[in-house]
Design a protein around this nucleic acid. Structure first.
Lengths: 246, 246
DNA sequence: CAGTGGTCTAGACCACAAT
DNA sequence: TTGTGGTCTAGACCACTGG
């Protein structure tokens, strides 16, 4: 029988609250003193639990004010995928999105496999092209589990990215990333406005929420216009992530 | 004046010892009790400092035995680049390396820029092809700062990878990664034995040691044979990294 | 057996935010 | 002024490793 430590229990308690929506993005969670009383533990133990969740990016702590559920959630410690619109704006470029498709589709075997759930009959499917200064930089092909989000088809994705929207409705518990180099199809090449023979980075991402696959996304980035970057230092505990356009 | 906390001081103390070689890979560092006495702090403070360094992969803690300098160092929390030979062996494939070049070269402007040091006159240059079951899976093009390692040219890289060797001589303090999709040149295509029109993943990595760029590497992975993968869960604090061959 | 790390407690002092 | 998080201490008990 595995011994469960107090600080792990506290983390689980908070994680469950986040998954069940007890605390939504931006909400203030109970203070350390409140958790000490309600959970009957010492403050140092509460502090460690909350600090670790904050370090992983789920919570934001503001001394003097409180602890809040992160609004801009980092997907993972391993591969931080920030909102593409933020990345572009950070780069002082103009962001624009074009919605190429937004519909409910019958679940095809090919895609269904990724959801690891054969009972799913239909899926939301969106295809969105993201521009930086009117140049296409990302082709986003996304399937969403309807069980996670009933409102998906009603969203105006020229104003909000699917990522931003989904972070509000489905607190993610798990993320999987796969990076590959691929050659785009003729159609994709045309959409992305790239020359023949130019490869793309393909980032495939699946997210889980409440034990089920929530989304399955394929992000295609034209080489030359995009690359993933990351820099890490042991001292000073800060990591700089970059998304470079050229 | 920024206030420096005790646990940060302790981390710096250990990091400095690691950089200066006071404790080498595999060595046992002072126990918590010893650090408590020599640094005049409480054990909880020591524990936090050492735990954080262990979490970042620099140290390995074995309850009952002690704390040791990690031998297999994870490059970063962000993009774990394990030894290619280990990855291949883990995949139950036979690893083999071919040394295509191992020499001292004049520093060319192009490469010198990456080292951010115009005083460098020459560099070690190695080109190594890594195979899995006799199929080429990685073309490694590496430049090494001679100031970091005088023995580089004497190493048998069919038995040790440059990565493994360099981790012994130069404890890395900082890492930069950039991932791109590229088309290999004709020559590279021939070396990697891939068909025309097949893209490659290009992972460029620079490492710093003692404030200077230690190495500059370009790793080319044929698409279809390699992809980076990562999976992350908030619960259970474990991350699974995968390197998939096919 | 002594030494190690892993955790936990019940206090404490501080700087900062909100009111 | 009150509440918040950030840190630190000096103890404590435990499970495990090593000789």
């Amino acid at each position: 029988m595995a011994v469960i430590f107090q600080y792990e229990k506290i983390k689980d308690y908070i994680l469950t609250g986040l998954e069940e929506g007890t605390w939504q993005a931006g909400d203030k969670i109970p203070s350390e003193a409140e958790l000490v009383m309600s959970l009957n533990v010492s403050r140092m133990t509460v502090n460690r639990a909350v600090r670790e969740l904050a370090n992983s990016g789920l919570l934001v702590r503001i001394p003097g004010a409180g602890t809040f559920v992160a609004t801009e959630r980092k997907a993972a410690q391993l591969l931080e995928v920030r909102s593409i619109s933020d990345q572009i704006k950070e780069n002082n470029q103009v962001y624009k999105a074009t919605v190429l498709k937004l519909a409910i589709v019958k679940a095809i075997d090919n895609v269904l496999e990724e959801f690891e759930d054969t009972t799913i009959k239909s899926l939301y499917h969106s295809i969105i092209l993201h521009h930086a200064d009117d140049v296409p930089v990302q082709l986003e092909d996304r399937f969403v589990n309807p069980a996670i989000d009933k409102t998906y088809l009603d969203i105006d994705f020229t104003k909000t990215t699917p990522n931003e929207h989904l972070m509000q409705v489905a607190p993610l518990a798990e993320v999987e990333h796969i990076i590959e180099a691929i050659m785009p199809t003729k159609r994709e090449r045309k959409i992305l406005q790239i020359a023949e023979g130019t490869p793309c980075l393909l980032l495939t991402r699946r997210t889980w929420s409440g034990g089920h696959v929530a989304t399955y996304v394929r992000l295609k980035y034209p080489s030359k216009r995009f690359r993933f970057g990351t820099r890490f230092s042991y001292r000073g505990r800060k990591s700089v992530h970059r998304a470079a356009f050229s």
